[in-house]
Simulated assay, not measured.
Amino acid sequence: MAGRLTVRHLELFSAVCACGGVSAAARELGVSQPSVSQAVRDLEERFGTTLFDRVSRRMDVTEAGRRLLDHAREVLDDLEELEHAMGEGGVSVLRLASSITCGTCHLPRLLSALREREGGVKVRVRVEDSGSVERDVLANDVDLGLVEGLVHSDEIVAVPFARDELVVVGPPGRTGGRLGVRDLVREPLVLRERGSGVRELLEAALTAHGLAVDPVWESVSTEAIRSAVEAGLGLSVLPADLVARDVAEGRLARIEVDGLELARDLLVIRHRRKAVSPAMAALLALMPPGCRPGTERAPLAEA
C-alpha cells in the first residue's frame, strides 16, 4: 500500500461489508467498481491478511475482516459525531428517533427538561414505528431511540425508563361485560401496523393462547385508529396513557379482557459501539430509574 490509510479506505471497506460485494457497494456509494476493489486490495496489503473469502462470486467477511470492521465503525462514527458538532458551529446536536407512544407521552416532557438544563443542545427528532427506530439506531442515523417492548438486535443496548400498559378500547357506550381472549379475536379489530411495539406485544400475548389476529383495519396513525373505534368500526388495543382522556370524556370505552396481560417496558436504546456524547449524556441524566428492581441507567452510558 503506497499511501497512508485513509478514512475513504474505511468507508469503502465498510460499504462492501454492508452491501455484500464490490459492485453493490460501488452502486450504493455512486463510485466506480475499480476504486472499491483497489481500496480492499490496499487494506489487505497493508495488514497482510485476507479480509474477505471470495467464494462463488460472494464476498464473506473473514475473522480479520470483522475485527477491522469493528474498528472502522468506531472511527467513522467518531468522525460523523465530529462533523455534526463542527457543522453546527460548536452547538451540541442530539439526533433522536421515537416510537409514537414514547413520542407522544414521554419525549415532550424530557426535551422540555433538557432545554431548561442544557440550552445549547440542538435536538432533531423523528417519530416512527419501533422497528424503524431500531433500524435507525443500528445505522447510526440517530444517537438514541425510544421504543416499546422488544429489541431484536444484539448490537443494541436497551434500558427501561418507564412502564406502559395497553388496554382494549371500544366505541362509546359499548356494553356486554368482560370478554375472553377468544372473544376478542372474533371481534373486528382496528390495529397498529406490523412492526409497531403495540402490535408485537399483542401478537406475542395471543400466540401464548394459540391465537392470531386478522385486523379489518391497520394504520400507522393512532389518531386514525381512535377515530375508527369511536365510529364503531371495531375494537383496538392502545397504550393506556394515549386513550386515558378519551375514556374519561366518554369518546371511547375501556373493555376488560380476561386472561390478557398487556404491559411492557419503554426502552431507551443506542448502538453498543456508539460513543456517548455530552448531548446524549445530558438526556440520559434526565431518565427516571427503570421499573424493574436493580435496573440502572449506567449500562446504557457505559456498555
Rank of each mutant, 00 (worst) to 15 (best):
A282T: 01
L300S: 08
R4E: 11
A298T: 12
M86R: 13
A212E: 13
P299D: 06
L184E: 02
V181H: 04
L79P: 09
R186Y: 06
A228Y: 02
L111K: 09
A228Q: 04
E261M: 09
G87Q: 10
L150S: 12
A113M: 15
L76Q: 11
G21P: 06
A39G: 10
V213F: 11
A25E: 04
L12N: 00
I225P: 01
R292P: 00
E88C: 15
R126N: 11
R251N: 12
E81I: 09
V121D: 01
A298W: 08
F47A: 05
E134Y: 11
A285F: 07
V40E: 04
V123T: 15
V229M: 04
V151G: 00
E88D: 15
D241F: 00
A205H: 08
V137H: 09
A281I: 02
F13Q: 00
V169D: 03
E116I: 01
E148V: 04
G176V: 04
P239V: 07
V237S: 00
V61P: 02
L12T: 01
V142I: 13
R186V: 02
I156C: 03
L82K: 10
V190Q: 01
V121M: 01
A285L: 07
V55H: 14
D164R: 04
R117M: 14
V123N: 06
R199Q: 14
G177K: 05
A285W: 06
V16E: 02
V220W: 06
D143T: 03
A204S: 13
G259M: 01
F52Q: 00
D78L: 14
L68V: 10
F161T: 06
A208I: 06
L114S: 10
G197H: 01
L94Y: 01
L166E: 03
E155M: 10
A224V: 10
D136L: 15
L286R: 05
S35P: 02
S35N: 11
V40N: 06
G290Y: 02
I100L: 13
R109N: 11
T175C: 03
G176D: 10
D70S: 09
E28R: 12
D78S: 15
L82G: 12
N140F: 14
G250K: 03
R292D: 13
V169S: 04
G173H: 08
E218V: 05
G197F: 03
D258R: 14
V31C: 14
A253W: 01
A64P: 00
H71D: 12
T50M: 08
A139T: 06
G177V: 05
G131Q: 12
R115P: 10
D183L: 04
E187A: 13
E256I: 08
V151K: 02
L5P: 04
P34L: 10
T175N: 07
G20Q: 05
R178V: 13
